[in-house]
Write a protein that binds this DNA or RNA. Structure first.
Lengths: 234, 234
DNA sequence: TAAATATTCAATTGATCAATTGAATATTTA
DNA sequence: TAAATATTCAATTGATCAATTGAATATTTA
Protein backbone atom coordinates (compact mmCIF):
# COMPACT_ATOMS: atom_id res chain seq x y z
CA UNK A 1 0.00 0.00 0.00
CA UNK A 2 1.29 3.40 -0.98
CA UNK A 3 2.50 5.69 1.72
CA UNK A 4 0.16 8.45 0.60
CA UNK A 5 -2.85 6.20 0.75
CA UNK A 6 -1.81 5.03 4.19
CA UNK A 7 -1.61 8.59 5.45
CA UNK A 8 -4.96 9.45 3.93
CA UNK A 9 -6.68 6.48 5.51
CA UNK A 10 -5.08 7.04 8.90
CA UNK A 11 -6.28 10.61 8.86
CA UNK A 12 -9.75 9.83 7.59
CA UNK A 13 -10.40 7.05 10.06
CA UNK A 14 -9.05 9.19 12.90
CA UNK A 15 -11.71 11.76 12.05
CA UNK A 16 -14.44 9.14 11.88
CA UNK A 17 -13.31 7.77 15.22
CA UNK A 18 -14.01 11.14 16.83
CA UNK A 19 -17.68 10.33 16.65
CA UNK A 20 -17.08 6.75 17.75
CA UNK A 21 -15.19 7.95 20.80
CA UNK A 22 -17.98 10.35 21.67
CA UNK A 23 -20.54 7.57 21.79
CA UNK A 24 -18.30 5.04 23.53
CA UNK A 25 -19.39 6.29 26.93
CA UNK A 26 -22.69 5.23 28.49
CA UNK A 27 -22.92 8.62 30.16
CA UNK A 28 -22.63 10.52 26.94
CA UNK A 29 -25.18 8.30 25.27
CA UNK A 30 -27.58 9.21 28.02
CA UNK A 31 -26.83 12.89 27.58
CA UNK A 32 -27.51 12.61 23.86
CA UNK A 33 -30.84 10.98 24.61
CA UNK A 34 -31.74 13.87 26.89
CA UNK A 35 -30.77 16.34 24.19
CA UNK A 36 -32.95 14.47 21.73
CA UNK A 37 -35.88 16.10 23.58
CA UNK A 38 -34.56 19.61 23.07
CA UNK A 39 -31.98 22.00 24.44
CA UNK A 40 -31.03 21.87 28.11
CA UNK A 41 -28.73 23.60 30.53
CA UNK A 42 -25.75 21.81 32.03
CA UNK A 43 -27.28 21.56 35.45
CA UNK A 44 -30.54 20.18 34.09
CA UNK A 45 -28.64 17.50 32.23
CA UNK A 46 -26.59 16.81 35.34
CA UNK A 47 -29.72 16.33 37.40
CA UNK A 48 -31.42 14.10 34.82
CA UNK A 49 -28.37 11.88 34.53
CA UNK A 50 -27.38 11.83 38.20
CA UNK A 51 -23.95 13.27 37.51
CA UNK A 52 -22.06 16.20 38.96
CA UNK A 53 -22.16 19.43 37.02
CA UNK A 54 -18.40 19.29 36.54
CA UNK A 55 -18.51 15.78 35.16
CA UNK A 56 -21.47 16.63 32.94
CA UNK A 57 -19.61 19.65 31.63
CA UNK A 58 -16.60 17.50 30.82
CA UNK A 59 -18.73 15.07 28.86
CA UNK A 60 -20.39 17.91 27.03
CA UNK A 61 -16.96 19.25 26.03
CA UNK A 62 -16.26 15.85 24.51
CA UNK A 63 -19.53 15.99 22.61
CA UNK A 64 -18.67 19.47 21.40
CA UNK A 65 -15.28 18.26 20.22
CA UNK A 66 -16.92 15.63 18.11
CA UNK A 67 -19.44 18.14 16.72
CA UNK A 68 -22.45 16.15 17.86
CA UNK A 69 -23.78 19.01 19.98
CA UNK A 70 -23.78 22.79 19.96
CA UNK A 71 -24.39 25.30 22.68
CA UNK A 72 -25.58 28.84 23.19
CA UNK A 73 -24.76 31.00 26.18
CA UNK A 74 -27.70 32.84 27.69
CA UNK A 75 -26.75 34.82 30.80
CA UNK A 76 -25.01 32.48 33.19
CA UNK A 77 -26.60 29.50 31.44
CA UNK A 78 -25.23 27.38 28.64
CA UNK A 79 -27.92 25.65 26.63
CA UNK A 80 -26.75 22.53 24.85
CA UNK A 81 -28.59 20.89 21.98
CA UNK A 82 -27.99 18.28 19.30
CA UNK A 83 -26.11 19.74 16.39
CA UNK A 84 -28.81 18.76 13.91
CA UNK A 85 -31.37 16.19 12.90
CA UNK A 86 -28.82 13.85 11.39
CA UNK A 87 -27.29 13.41 14.83
CA UNK A 88 -30.69 12.41 16.19
CA UNK A 89 -31.16 9.96 13.34
CA UNK A 90 -27.73 8.52 13.90
CA UNK A 91 -28.43 7.92 17.58
CA UNK A 92 -31.71 6.27 16.70
CA UNK A 93 -29.98 3.95 14.27
CA UNK A 94 -27.40 3.09 16.92
CA UNK A 95 -30.20 2.21 19.30
CA UNK A 96 -31.99 0.09 16.72
CA UNK A 97 -28.78 -1.69 15.73
CA UNK A 98 -27.97 -2.50 19.34
CA UNK A 99 -31.49 -3.76 19.92
CA UNK A 100 -31.07 -6.02 16.94
CA UNK A 101 -27.61 -7.34 17.69
CA UNK A 102 -27.06 -7.27 21.43
CA UNK A 103 -28.95 -10.02 23.16
CA UNK A 104 -28.20 -8.57 26.57
CA UNK A 105 -30.05 -5.44 25.55
CA UNK A 106 -32.94 -7.46 24.21
CA UNK A 107 -33.16 -9.09 27.58
CA UNK A 108 -33.21 -5.77 29.44
CA UNK A 109 -36.00 -4.59 27.21
CA UNK A 110 -38.02 -7.72 27.73
CA UNK A 111 -37.65 -7.37 31.47
CA UNK A 112 -39.57 -4.12 31.32
CA UNK A 113 -42.61 -6.17 30.48
CA UNK A 114 -41.97 -9.33 32.45
CA UNK A 115 -41.43 -7.22 35.58
CA UNK A 116 -44.82 -5.61 35.12
CA UNK A 117 -48.32 -6.85 34.39
CA UNK A 118 -50.23 -5.93 31.33
CA UNK A 119 -47.96 -3.44 29.66
CA UNK A 120 -48.63 -3.55 25.97
CA UNK A 121 -47.15 -1.64 23.12
CA UNK A 122 -48.46 -0.07 20.00
CA UNK A 123 -46.43 0.33 16.83
CA UNK A 124 -46.02 3.72 15.33
CA UNK A 125 -47.58 2.62 12.06
CA UNK A 126 -50.72 1.51 13.88
CA UNK A 127 -50.83 4.66 15.96
CA UNK A 128 -50.82 6.74 12.81
CA UNK A 129 -53.80 4.82 11.47
CA UNK A 130 -55.65 5.09 14.78
CA UNK A 131 -55.02 8.80 15.08
CA UNK A 132 -56.39 9.40 11.63
CA UNK A 133 -59.52 7.57 12.69
CA UNK A 134 -59.64 9.66 15.85
CA UNK A 135 -60.24 6.71 18.16
CA UNK A 136 -57.17 7.04 20.31
CA UNK A 137 -55.83 9.55 22.82
CA UNK A 138 -52.14 10.26 22.74
CA UNK A 139 -50.40 11.61 25.82
CA UNK A 140 -46.84 12.86 26.23
CA UNK A 141 -45.70 12.18 29.79
CA UNK A 142 -42.36 13.99 29.60
CA UNK A 143 -41.81 17.29 31.40
CA UNK A 144 -43.91 20.05 29.89
CA UNK A 145 -40.86 22.00 28.68
CA UNK A 146 -39.88 19.09 26.51
CA UNK A 147 -43.39 18.82 25.11
CA UNK A 148 -43.28 22.51 24.28
CA UNK A 149 -39.99 22.18 22.45
CA UNK A 150 -41.27 19.37 20.27
CA UNK A 151 -43.90 16.69 20.38
CA UNK A 152 -45.81 14.24 18.25
CA UNK A 153 -48.64 16.11 16.54
CA UNK A 154 -51.94 15.63 18.33
CA UNK A 155 -50.39 14.65 21.64
CA UNK A 156 -51.60 16.06 24.95
CA UNK A 157 -49.00 17.03 27.52
CA UNK A 158 -49.48 15.36 30.89
CA UNK A 159 -46.17 15.15 32.74
CA UNK A 160 -45.93 11.93 34.70
CA UNK A 161 -46.05 13.65 38.07
CA UNK A 162 -49.37 15.28 37.08
CA UNK A 163 -50.94 12.15 35.65
CA UNK A 164 -52.97 11.10 38.66
CA UNK A 165 -54.40 14.60 38.98
CA UNK A 166 -55.54 14.45 35.36
CA UNK A 167 -57.26 11.09 35.32
CA UNK A 168 -60.68 12.70 35.29
CA UNK A 169 -59.87 14.45 32.00
CA UNK A 170 -59.11 11.20 30.21
CA UNK A 171 -61.60 9.10 28.24
CA UNK A 172 -62.38 5.84 29.98
CA UNK A 173 -63.75 4.28 26.80
CA UNK A 174 -60.95 5.10 24.44
CA UNK A 175 -57.49 3.65 24.23
CA UNK A 176 -54.77 5.90 25.60
CA UNK A 177 -51.29 5.81 24.13
CA UNK A 178 -48.50 7.12 26.32
CA UNK A 179 -45.06 8.09 25.07
CA UNK A 180 -42.00 9.71 26.61
CA UNK A 181 -38.32 10.15 25.71
CA UNK A 182 -37.92 6.95 23.79
CA UNK A 183 -36.61 3.44 24.03
CA UNK A 184 -34.35 3.98 27.01
CA UNK A 185 -36.89 5.81 29.15
CA UNK A 186 -39.48 4.33 31.51
CA UNK A 187 -41.82 7.28 32.01
CA UNK A 188 -44.34 5.93 29.51
CA UNK A 189 -44.18 2.52 31.15
CA UNK A 190 -45.02 4.08 34.51
CA UNK A 191 -47.81 6.04 32.90
CA UNK A 192 -49.37 2.93 31.41
CA UNK A 193 -49.13 1.21 34.79
CA UNK A 194 -50.93 4.07 36.51
CA UNK A 195 -53.59 4.30 33.85
CA UNK A 196 -54.32 0.61 33.80
CA UNK A 197 -54.49 0.52 37.58
CA UNK A 198 -57.28 3.05 37.29
CA UNK A 199 -59.22 1.10 34.72
CA UNK A 200 -58.09 2.85 31.55
CA UNK A 201 -57.16 1.07 28.38
CA UNK A 202 -53.58 2.18 27.93
CA UNK A 203 -50.60 1.12 25.82
CA UNK A 204 -47.05 2.35 25.40
CA UNK A 205 -45.48 3.86 22.32
CA UNK A 206 -41.75 3.39 22.90
CA UNK A 207 -40.60 5.47 19.93
CA UNK A 208 -39.34 8.97 20.62
CA UNK A 209 -40.45 12.21 19.03
CA UNK A 210 -37.29 12.19 16.92
CA UNK A 211 -38.17 8.74 15.67
CA UNK A 212 -41.61 9.96 14.79
CA UNK A 213 -40.04 12.84 12.91
CA UNK A 214 -37.58 10.70 11.01
CA UNK A 215 -40.44 8.52 9.81
CA UNK A 216 -43.08 11.16 9.30
CA UNK A 217 -41.23 14.06 7.80
CA UNK A 218 -44.23 15.82 6.38
CA UNK A 219 -45.36 16.83 9.85
CA UNK A 220 -43.79 19.97 11.07
CA UNK A 221 -45.01 20.67 14.57
CA UNK A 222 -41.48 21.22 15.64
CA UNK A 223 -40.10 24.61 16.32
CA UNK A 224 -36.48 25.39 16.83
CA UNK A 225 -35.93 25.18 20.55
CA UNK A 226 -33.29 27.84 20.94
CA UNK A 227 -35.71 30.65 21.47
CA UNK A 228 -37.59 28.82 24.18
CA UNK A 229 -36.86 29.14 27.84
CA UNK A 230 -35.75 26.08 29.67
CA UNK A 231 -37.34 24.93 32.89
CA UNK A 232 -34.58 26.51 34.88
CA UNK A 233 -35.93 29.97 34.36
CA UNK A 234 -38.06 30.81 37.34
CA UNK B 1 -35.00 9.62 39.92
CA UNK B 2 -36.05 6.20 41.12
CA UNK B 3 -33.39 3.67 41.89
CA UNK B 4 -34.93 1.12 39.55
CA UNK B 5 -34.97 3.54 36.66
CA UNK B 6 -31.37 4.44 37.36
CA UNK B 7 -30.32 0.82 37.22
CA UNK B 8 -32.26 0.25 34.02
CA UNK B 9 -30.70 3.24 32.30
CA UNK B 10 -27.19 2.39 33.45
CA UNK B 11 -27.58 -1.11 32.07
CA UNK B 12 -29.20 -0.05 28.81
CA UNK B 13 -26.64 2.63 28.03
CA UNK B 14 -23.82 0.26 28.92
CA UNK B 15 -25.11 -2.09 26.24
CA UNK B 16 -25.44 0.69 23.69
CA UNK B 17 -21.91 1.81 24.51
CA UNK B 18 -20.60 -1.60 23.43
CA UNK B 19 -21.14 -0.56 19.87
CA UNK B 20 -19.76 2.90 20.52
CA UNK B 21 -16.59 1.43 21.97
CA UNK B 22 -16.19 -0.84 18.97
CA UNK B 23 -16.19 2.08 16.56
CA UNK B 24 -14.08 4.38 18.74
CA UNK B 25 -10.88 3.02 17.19
CA UNK B 26 -9.65 4.20 13.80
CA UNK B 27 -8.22 0.76 13.20
CA UNK B 28 -11.49 -1.00 13.75
CA UNK B 29 -13.31 1.46 11.54
CA UNK B 30 -10.93 0.56 8.79
CA UNK B 31 -11.50 -3.13 9.38
CA UNK B 32 -15.24 -2.61 9.18
CA UNK B 33 -14.77 -0.83 5.86
CA UNK B 34 -12.78 -3.77 4.55
CA UNK B 35 -15.51 -6.15 5.68
CA UNK B 36 -18.08 -4.01 3.91
CA UNK B 37 -16.69 -5.56 0.70
CA UNK B 38 -17.25 -9.10 1.87
CA UNK B 39 -15.76 -11.73 4.13
CA UNK B 40 -12.01 -11.86 4.64
CA UNK B 41 -9.44 -13.84 6.56
CA UNK B 42 -7.52 -12.32 9.43
CA UNK B 43 -4.27 -12.19 7.51
CA UNK B 44 -5.91 -10.51 4.53
CA UNK B 45 -7.37 -7.86 6.78
CA UNK B 46 -4.01 -7.48 8.47
CA UNK B 47 -2.29 -6.93 5.15
CA UNK B 48 -4.92 -4.46 3.89
CA UNK B 49 -4.73 -2.40 7.09
CA UNK B 50 -0.96 -2.62 7.63
CA UNK B 51 -1.34 -4.25 11.02
CA UNK B 52 0.14 -7.36 12.56
CA UNK B 53 -1.99 -10.48 12.51
CA UNK B 54 -2.02 -10.55 16.30
CA UNK B 55 -3.21 -6.97 16.55
CA UNK B 56 -5.78 -7.49 13.83
CA UNK B 57 -7.07 -10.53 15.66
CA UNK B 58 -7.41 -8.55 18.86
CA UNK B 59 -9.44 -5.89 17.14
CA UNK B 60 -11.62 -8.51 15.53
CA UNK B 61 -12.31 -10.01 18.97
CA UNK B 62 -13.52 -6.59 20.04
CA UNK B 63 -15.80 -6.40 17.02
CA UNK B 64 -17.11 -9.87 17.83
CA UNK B 65 -17.83 -8.82 21.38
CA UNK B 66 -19.94 -5.96 20.14
CA UNK B 67 -21.76 -8.24 17.68
CA UNK B 68 -20.84 -6.14 14.66
CA UNK B 69 -19.07 -9.02 12.95
CA UNK B 70 -19.32 -12.78 12.73
CA UNK B 71 -16.85 -15.41 11.67
CA UNK B 72 -16.68 -18.87 10.24
CA UNK B 73 -13.77 -21.25 10.58
CA UNK B 74 -12.71 -22.99 7.38
CA UNK B 75 -9.65 -25.18 7.83
CA UNK B 76 -6.94 -23.08 9.41
CA UNK B 77 -8.66 -19.94 8.21
CA UNK B 78 -11.16 -17.72 10.02
CA UNK B 79 -13.36 -15.74 7.69
CA UNK B 80 -14.79 -12.60 9.25
CA UNK B 81 -17.75 -10.70 7.85
CA UNK B 82 -20.16 -7.99 8.91
CA UNK B 83 -22.94 -9.39 11.03
CA UNK B 84 -25.66 -8.14 8.71
CA UNK B 85 -26.78 -5.36 6.44
CA UNK B 86 -27.85 -3.09 9.27
CA UNK B 87 -24.23 -2.94 10.39
CA UNK B 88 -23.20 -1.78 6.92
CA UNK B 89 -25.94 0.82 6.92
CA UNK B 90 -24.89 2.03 10.33
CA UNK B 91 -21.28 2.46 9.24
CA UNK B 92 -22.44 4.36 6.18
CA UNK B 93 -24.50 6.70 8.30
CA UNK B 94 -21.53 7.24 10.60
CA UNK B 95 -19.43 8.17 7.59
CA UNK B 96 -22.07 10.53 6.23
CA UNK B 97 -22.59 12.16 9.62
CA UNK B 98 -18.86 12.72 10.04
CA UNK B 99 -18.61 14.17 6.55
CA UNK B 100 -21.36 16.56 7.45
CA UNK B 101 -20.17 17.61 10.87
CA UNK B 102 -16.39 17.30 10.98
CA UNK B 103 -14.72 20.08 9.05
CA UNK B 104 -11.33 18.39 9.32
CA UNK B 105 -12.74 15.44 7.42
CA UNK B 106 -14.29 17.71 4.83
CA UNK B 107 -10.85 19.17 4.31
CA UNK B 108 -9.23 15.77 3.86
CA UNK B 109 -11.83 14.86 1.30
CA UNK B 110 -11.37 18.09 -0.60
CA UNK B 111 -7.62 17.52 -0.69
CA UNK B 112 -8.20 14.39 -2.77
CA UNK B 113 -9.27 16.69 -5.57
CA UNK B 114 -7.03 19.69 -4.98
CA UNK B 115 -4.00 17.38 -4.96
CA UNK B 116 -4.94 16.00 -8.34
CA UNK B 117 -5.96 17.51 -11.64
CA UNK B 118 -9.30 16.92 -13.19
CA UNK B 119 -10.85 14.37 -10.92
CA UNK B 120 -14.58 14.71 -11.15
CA UNK B 121 -17.35 12.87 -9.45
CA UNK B 122 -20.70 11.54 -10.45
CA UNK B 123 -23.62 11.18 -8.07
CA UNK B 124 -25.27 7.87 -7.66
CA UNK B 125 -28.62 9.24 -8.75
CA UNK B 126 -27.12 10.44 -12.02
CA UNK B 127 -25.27 7.19 -12.54
CA UNK B 128 -28.51 5.29 -12.27
CA UNK B 129 -30.07 7.47 -14.97
CA UNK B 130 -27.02 7.13 -17.20
CA UNK B 131 -26.88 3.37 -16.83
CA UNK B 132 -30.50 3.05 -17.81
CA UNK B 133 -29.68 5.02 -20.92
CA UNK B 134 -26.71 2.78 -21.54
CA UNK B 135 -24.32 5.62 -22.28
CA UNK B 136 -21.84 4.97 -19.50
CA UNK B 137 -19.35 2.24 -18.62
CA UNK B 138 -19.05 1.31 -14.98
CA UNK B 139 -15.86 -0.33 -13.71
CA UNK B 140 -15.14 -1.80 -10.30
CA UNK B 141 -11.44 -1.38 -9.55
CA UNK B 142 -11.34 -3.36 -6.33
CA UNK B 143 -9.70 -6.79 -6.15
CA UNK B 144 -11.60 -9.34 -8.21
CA UNK B 145 -12.57 -11.39 -5.16
CA UNK B 146 -14.42 -8.42 -3.77
CA UNK B 147 -16.20 -7.88 -7.08
CA UNK B 148 -17.24 -11.53 -7.07
CA UNK B 149 -18.65 -11.30 -3.58
CA UNK B 150 -20.80 -8.31 -4.42
CA UNK B 151 -20.84 -5.47 -6.90
CA UNK B 152 -23.01 -2.81 -8.40
CA UNK B 153 -25.16 -4.38 -11.11
CA UNK B 154 -23.72 -3.77 -14.55
CA UNK B 155 -20.19 -3.11 -13.36
CA UNK B 156 -17.16 -4.62 -15.04
CA UNK B 157 -14.36 -5.88 -12.83
CA UNK B 158 -10.97 -4.36 -13.62
CA UNK B 159 -8.75 -4.46 -10.57
CA UNK B 160 -6.58 -1.37 -10.35
CA UNK B 161 -3.37 -3.25 -11.00
CA UNK B 162 -4.83 -4.62 -14.24
CA UNK B 163 -6.25 -1.34 -15.46
CA UNK B 164 -3.43 -0.32 -17.78
CA UNK B 165 -3.52 -3.73 -19.41
CA UNK B 166 -7.20 -3.32 -20.09
CA UNK B 167 -7.24 0.15 -21.60
CA UNK B 168 -7.78 -1.23 -25.09
CA UNK B 169 -11.03 -2.84 -24.00
CA UNK B 170 -12.54 0.44 -22.82
CA UNK B 171 -14.62 2.81 -24.96
CA UNK B 172 -12.81 6.02 -25.74
CA UNK B 173 -16.00 7.83 -26.66
CA UNK B 174 -18.08 6.95 -23.64
CA UNK B 175 -17.80 8.17 -20.10
CA UNK B 176 -16.26 5.67 -17.71
CA UNK B 177 -17.30 5.63 -14.08
CA UNK B 178 -14.89 4.03 -11.65
CA UNK B 179 -15.78 2.93 -8.13
CA UNK B 180 -14.00 1.03 -5.36
CA UNK B 181 -14.50 0.43 -1.64
CA UNK B 182 -16.16 3.68 -0.85
CA UNK B 183 -15.59 7.07 0.61
CA UNK B 184 -12.39 6.25 2.48
CA UNK B 185 -10.65 4.47 -0.39
CA UNK B 186 -8.54 5.98 -3.17
CA UNK B 187 -8.49 3.15 -5.71
CA UNK B 188 -11.17 4.79 -7.84
CA UNK B 189 -9.31 8.08 -7.69
CA UNK B 190 -6.19 6.41 -9.01
CA UNK B 191 -8.20 4.70 -11.71
CA UNK B 192 -9.67 7.98 -12.90
CA UNK B 193 -6.21 9.50 -12.96
CA UNK B 194 -4.88 6.69 -15.11
CA UNK B 195 -7.85 6.77 -17.45
CA UNK B 196 -7.76 10.49 -17.95
CA UNK B 197 -4.03 10.40 -18.56
CA UNK B 198 -4.79 8.06 -21.43
CA UNK B 199 -7.44 10.27 -22.94
CA UNK B 200 -10.55 8.60 -21.56
CA UNK B 201 -13.49 10.49 -20.14
CA UNK B 202 -13.58 9.18 -16.59
CA UNK B 203 -15.25 10.16 -13.32
CA UNK B 204 -15.35 8.75 -9.82
CA UNK B 205 -18.30 7.30 -7.98
CA UNK B 206 -17.28 7.51 -4.34
CA UNK B 207 -20.20 5.54 -2.96
CA UNK B 208 -19.59 1.93 -1.98
CA UNK B 209 -21.51 -1.15 -3.07
CA UNK B 210 -23.22 -1.21 0.31
CA UNK B 211 -24.35 2.36 -0.21
CA UNK B 212 -25.71 1.39 -3.57
CA UNK B 213 -27.58 -1.45 -1.96
CA UNK B 214 -29.03 0.61 0.82
CA UNK B 215 -30.41 3.04 -1.74
CA UNK B 216 -31.40 0.58 -4.43
CA UNK B 217 -32.84 -2.31 -2.56
CA UNK B 218 -34.69 -3.82 -5.48
CA UNK B 219 -31.45 -4.95 -7.05
CA UNK B 220 -30.21 -8.25 -5.83
CA UNK B 221 -26.95 -9.06 -7.51
CA UNK B 222 -25.50 -9.91 -4.16
CA UNK B 223 -24.90 -13.42 -3.04
CA UNK B 224 -24.01 -14.43 0.43
CA UNK B 225 -20.26 -14.48 0.52
CA UNK B 226 -19.69 -17.31 2.95
CA UNK B 227 -19.57 -20.01 0.33
CA UNK B 228 -16.97 -18.25 -1.73
CA UNK B 229 -13.26 -18.78 -1.47
CA UNK B 230 -11.13 -15.88 -0.42
CA UNK B 231 -8.02 -14.81 -2.31
CA UNK B 232 -5.82 -16.63 0.15
CA UNK B 233 -6.68 -20.01 -1.24
CA UNK B 234 -3.92 -20.94 -3.58
C1' DT C 1 -18.64 46.61 44.01
C1' DA C 2 -19.51 42.30 46.39
C1' DA C 3 -22.15 38.31 46.52
C1' DA C 4 -24.47 34.64 44.31
C1' DT C 5 -24.76 31.47 40.68
C1' DA C 6 -23.62 28.57 36.41
C1' DT C 7 -20.07 26.61 34.03
C1' DT C 8 -15.43 25.57 32.60
C1' DC C 9 -10.77 24.43 33.38
C1' DA C 10 -6.86 21.93 35.22
C1' DA C 11 -4.79 18.58 38.05
C1' DT C 12 -5.01 14.11 40.03
C1' DT C 13 -6.07 9.36 40.35
C1' DG C 14 -7.77 5.13 39.06
C1' DA C 15 -9.66 2.55 35.20
C1' DT C 16 -9.54 1.11 30.56
C1' DC C 17 -7.62 0.34 26.11
C1' DA C 18 -4.20 -0.47 22.12
C1' DA C 19 0.10 -2.47 20.41
C1' DT C 20 3.59 -5.73 21.01
C1' DT C 21 5.49 -10.14 22.05
C1' DG C 22 5.58 -14.80 22.12
C1' DA C 23 3.39 -18.97 23.73
C1' DA C 24 -0.66 -21.88 22.96
C1' DT C 25 -4.08 -23.92 20.06
C1' DA C 26 -6.18 -25.68 15.87
C1' DT C 27 -5.84 -27.40 11.19
C1' DT C 28 -3.63 -29.56 7.30
C1' DT C 29 -0.32 -32.24 4.86
C1' DA C 30 3.30 -35.43 3.83
C1' DT D 1 3.55 -38.15 13.65
C1' DA D 2 6.12 -33.95 12.80
C1' DA D 3 6.22 -29.82 10.41
C1' DA D 4 4.02 -25.91 8.55
C1' DT D 5 0.59 -22.52 8.86
C1' DA D 6 -3.32 -19.48 10.64
C1' DT D 7 -5.16 -17.62 14.56
C1' DT D 8 -6.00 -16.77 19.38
C1' DC D 9 -4.64 -15.99 23.98
C1' DA D 10 -2.24 -13.86 27.80
C1' DA D 11 1.00 -10.82 29.72
C1' DT D 12 3.20 -6.44 29.53
C1' DT D 13 3.70 -1.66 28.69
C1' DG D 14 2.51 2.72 27.39
C1' DA D 15 -1.35 5.64 26.10
C1' DT D 16 -5.84 7.34 26.84
C1' DC D 17 -10.00 8.23 29.29
C1' DA D 18 -13.54 9.05 33.18
C1' DA D 19 -14.63 10.87 37.74
C1' DT D 20 -13.47 13.86 41.31
C1' DT D 21 -11.95 18.07 43.31
C1' DG D 22 -11.57 22.71 43.64
C1' DA D 23 -9.96 26.91 41.54
C1' DA D 24 -10.99 30.08 37.80
C1' DT D 25 -14.08 32.51 34.85
C1' DA D 26 -18.34 34.66 33.34
C1' DT D 27 -22.83 36.62 34.29
C1' DT D 28 -26.30 38.88 37.05
C1' DT D 29 -28.21 41.46 40.78
C1' DA D 30 -28.62 44.48 44.65
Amino acid sequence: MEKETRVFKDNVYAQLARIGKAISSPRRLEILDILMQGSKTVETIARETDMSVANTSQHLQTLLESRLVEYEKRGVYSYYKLADRTVANFIISLQLLAEKRITELQKLREEIYTNRDNIEQIKMSELIVRMKKGNVTLIDVRPKEEYEMMHIPGANSIPIEDLEKHLATLPINQEIVAYCRGRCCLLSVEAVEILRAHGFKAVRLEASVQEWLSQNDEYSNVHDCCNKKNSNIS
